[in-house]
Design a binder for these strands. Structure first.
Length: 831
RNA sequence: GCGGGAGUGGUGGAACUGGUAGACACGCAGGACUUAGGAUCCUGUGCUUUCGAGCGUGCGGGUUCGAGUCCCGCCUCCCGCACCA
């Protein structure tokens, strides 16, 4: 039986040979798979062990593109591999469907963002089905659905009740183009991560989530992820949290009752503090300047630095500027009177916004001191021959009274103890991490479920009244103008206070869409649940996620927020784990000709064109075979047509098998059987360690071996050929589902191949019957011997020394040593 | 500046705990079958070569019987952070 029993998609070339019609095969199998739904997961009677594989969900900004195709190909290899290994694999998909592009498109074309979004989702969904992703189509979700964002609001209210959501007035990052605030994480190099506009500052009252309360746990729990996440991502997260230890020190300020506290990582250099700097844009600076003769200078300076863009501020070689405030602080360790400056090199929102300046041991302070002619006092002995400017390394304390002679660590400890004893300061920890600003002044997002009441203040919407749905866009002006468009929906905004019943107003901002994606993975477990955000019992069964797949662009933002939410949910008793993603794979990007694809650059490769030209399987195979999954793929360097040729070659094997299904393979050609066993074993190991490209190479080797066996070996009737072809079909099921399914049918089996199980390998076949032993003389290969893998050292040594090539290479020279590593290598070292 | 990663044929990339460098492909060349071939199949393909061999994993050292792999010092490229006291 070599012909398919159903419709036969293969056509023939002019000479009557079969050719592989990829498009016909695609059309043939899609409805069959819809019907069989092999990847529907979580049936109650399913006894298989569970695995949860998750791809980062897409933003529905149009149809799928090359980047999606790569990411989903990688995730699918893993999901399908585990399915073949007998796991009950949960592999869901959904849409991160709130956000600016929908709103901007709606403004541009006068549409409703919801309609635009839903149309794109429908298109992407159809493309994903065709792309043959092993998604469980019974578990889809989209975050712009009130049934979803209702639970964003619920979680917000819970966090508000626990003090984890709060409102404060602060200078925030503002994108003048998008007319909305941005979280710190969304400012990349001083620019808006969305639209690349230079970000400015604006004073606003906004909602924050207290992620800083979790700073230590976000760091500590990374030990669970060590070795499971890319080291690079862990490092980026560590740096982002930016924990540092040191001390807070109180300085008295002349003519002021209240002392000013500074944070320093180097309390051991306190004796070297020769001046004092406060952030020019801080409240403190304004307070200190008020009423002094420096007030005018300060105001002028402040005005000047406001003109400096964030981009210029970032230039580290910028000269130090500042203004003397005509005031003095007192160094608590030695009573020295030190001048107070306001400068923009000190940040208002880190530490206390004020520093003690130690020019001898801090480069920035050194530059400032040099510019302003301030004294530089060495208090840590630099190493002999030190010729730099500020010395910030370890050394012995000098000119520092009670810590003289101590090295850094001890000197810090002693100083902190001294400060604590005198009530002048204490050991302290600081973080670069700031609280997460989640308010956005845009329409297409989750409304913040708070009602502002003139008498009751901030009142959360009672949870039984959730969701607070978005008002209709009809009659609403969505154009960005600095305040939320929701404010224009009078009927929606004006409500009765839930507490006192008096007239009150809804909060008109919407949430950052990263809130949506901070817990969506839990929603998949029961996407239609109406009495809670997710099912805790299901979470116990499925979570944490065994494999998360997505781009490294989310190394900080999304992953940090999701980790934070997980910890909050853990503390609320809703989940029993503290880290959501056990293993993380960051696939690379698809670029073209060395640079990111873009319409303006004219190097855009359209996924639909590639799929049309070479078929789904060839595109998927190209993605997977191009190299390690985390590397970028340059589409100019790879060959989808080569992939297509390989698939046709594999497919042809299935037509050349003439033995019947179920034939006793143990009687088959031993060499081919060994090759099959080896390929299956190697490919499995490769997939487990993310070397998908190697797994494909092993499959190609097997195809080549089978081809050879058919054409110039035992022939297509040999049972080993069937065994090999079936193994190829199964190995290909991870990467090329259509070809795999078609091969499986042509080999006389029922669909679907997707769950038939990874081929079993007889371990005896993995033991080679002979191995090539390399014989080296002085480290250079001079002969190769075919020997038994079980050969003894002595036997092998004798064999090697008897080799004619060895005798010739030695050329009569004596032998110093012979290194024998049976059975693979002998190295003979001449005297 | 600080931190991290990476440099292997014409190209993408293989190489388990140090043990045959270049698997598997792309490209290229040649051949078979052909009216034709961008189809298919086969062969070859690191560089140099006085055809003996020599040289080869960014560069220079080192450890070792043996180094792409380990150690030290450089060079280049990529990524992240960027005045975080």
């Amino acid at each position: 039986m070599t012909q398919s029993q159903t419709s036969t998609p293969e056509s023939h070339d002019p000479e009557g040979r079969e050719t592989y019609d990829v498009h016909a095969v695609q059309e043939k199998w899609l409805p069959v798979w819809d019907d069989l739904a092999p990847f529907r997961s979580g049936r109650p009677d399913d006894e298989r062990p569970k695995k949860y594989v998750l791809d980062m969900f897409p933003y529905p900004s149009g149809d799928l593109h090359m980047g999606h195709a790569e990411a989903y190909a990688m995730g699918d290899v893993i999901a399908r591999y585990w399915a073949q290994q007998g796991f009950n694999v949960l592999h869901p998909i959904g849409w991160d469907s709130f956000g600016l592009p929908a709103e901007n498109a709606a403004i541009k074309h006068g549409l409703d963002p919801a309609g635009w979004t839903d149309a794109n989702i429908a298109q992407q969904k159809a493309s994903m089905r065709r792309y043959a992703c092993s998604f469980d189509w019974d578990r889809v979700l989209q975050t712009s659905d009130p049934a979803y964002y209702r639970w964003n609001q619920w979680l917000f209210v819970k966090m508000f009740e626990q003090g984890l959501a709060y409102r404060k007035d602060s200078a925030v990052n503002w994108c003048p183009n998008d007319q909305t605030v941005l979280a710190n994480e969304q400012v990349v190099g001083g620019r808006c991560e969305r639209c690349d506009t230079v970000v400015t500052k604006k004073k606003l009252t906004q909602w924050y989530l207290r992620i800083t309360d979790y700073a230590d746990r976000l760091l500590e729990d990374m030990t669970q992820l060590e070795g499971q996440w890319p080291e690079k991502v862990l490092l980026m997260q560590r740096n982002w949290v930016g924990r540092s230890t040191g001390a807070e020190v109180r300085f008295e300020v002349e003519g002021r009752d209240e002392p000013v506290t500074v944070y320093t990582t180097r309390p051991d250099t306190l004796f070297g503090a020769t001046f004092f700097v406060v952030a020019a844009d801080s409240e403190l600076a304004a307070t200190l300047a008020a009423g002094t003769s420096a007030e005018g200078d300060f105001a002028a300076y402040l005005e000047g630095i406001k003109q400096v863009s964030d981009i210029d501020r970032l230039a580290s070689d910028r000269p130090k500027t500042g203004v003397f405030l005509q005031r003095y602080a007192v160094n608590p360790v030695n009573g020295a009177r030190i001048p107070i400056y306001a400068a923009d090199y000190v940040l208002a929102d880190y530490g206390t916004g004020a520093i003690m300046a130690v020019p001898a041991h801090d480069q920035r302070d050194w530059e400032f001191a040099t510019t302003f002619g301030l004294p530089i006092v060495t208090v840590v002995q630099p190493p002999a021959g030190w010729s730099g400017e500020a010395y910030s390394g370890d050394g012995v304390a000098v000119n520092s009274e009670f810590i003289d002679g101590l090295r850094k660590t001890e000197a810090i400890e002693r100083t902190v103890a001294w400060l604590e004893e005198k009530g002048l300061g204490a050991g302290a920890v600081n973080y670069r991490l700031r609280d997460w600003l989640i308010s956005r002044q845009r329409y297409w997002g989750t409304p913040i479920p708070i009602i502002h009441c003139p008498s009751c203040g901030e009142v959360p919407v009672p949870v039984d009244q959730l969701p607070v749905t978005l008002p209709s866009t009809v009659g609403l002006d969505l154009t960005p103008k600095g305040t939320s468009p929701l404010g224009g929906a009078e009927d929606w905004v004006n409500v009765a206070c839930p507490t006192c019943g008096e007239p009150a107003r809804r909060d008109t901002d919407t949430m950052d869409t990263f809130v949506d994606s901070s817990w969506y993975f839990l929603r998949y477990l029961d996407p239609d649940k109406t009495d809670g955000p997710f099912d805790p019992a299901a979470a116990r069964e499925w979570m944490p996620i065994d494999q998360y797949v997505g781009g490294v662009t989310h190394a900080i933002l999304h992953l940090l927020y999701a980790r934070f939410f997980t910890k909050v949910l853990h503390d609320m008793g809703m989940v029993d784990f503290t880290e959501p993603f056990t293993r993380l794979l960051n696939q690379g990007m698809v670029v073209m000709g060395g640079s990111a694809m873009s319409k303006s650059r004219g190097n855009l490769v359209r996924l639909t064109d590639e799929l049309e030209g070479n078929g789904v399987d060839a595109v998927r195979l190209t993605m997977v075979f191009a190299g390690p999954p985390e590397d970028d793929i340059d589409w100019a360097d790879v060959s989808p047509s080569g992939a297509k040729k390989f698939l046709a070659r594999a497919w042809r094997l299935s037509g050349d098998v003439t033995s019947a299904p179920g034939v006793d393979v143990t009687t088959g050609d031993l060499a081919l059987r060994r090759a099959t066993a080896r390929a299956v074993d190697d490919a499995g190991k490769a997939v487990e360690s993310y070397r998908f490209n190697v797994a494909v190479a092993k499959t190609m080797e097997l195809v080549n071996a089978a081809r050879k066996a058919i054409d110039s070996g035992p022939g297509g009737a040999d049972p080993a050929v069937r065994e090999a072809a079936e193994a190829v079909a199964i190995l290909l099921s991870l990467v090329a589902p259509y070809t795999s399914e078609e091969m499986w049918e042509r080999l006389g089996h029922e669909p679907t191949v997707a769950l038939v199980g990874w081929p079993t390998v007889d371990p005896a076949l993995l033991v080679e019957d002979s191995v090539t032993c390399v014989v080296q003389v002085a480290g250079k290969v001079c002969d190769r011997l075919e020997v038994s893998p079980l050969i003894s050292e002595d036997e092998l040594r004798a064999l090697a020394l008897a080799s004619a090539a060895v005798v010739k290479a030695l050329d009569g020279a004596g032998i110093r040593t012979v290194v024998v590593r049976a059975p693979r290598l002998v190295n003979i070292v001449p005297a």
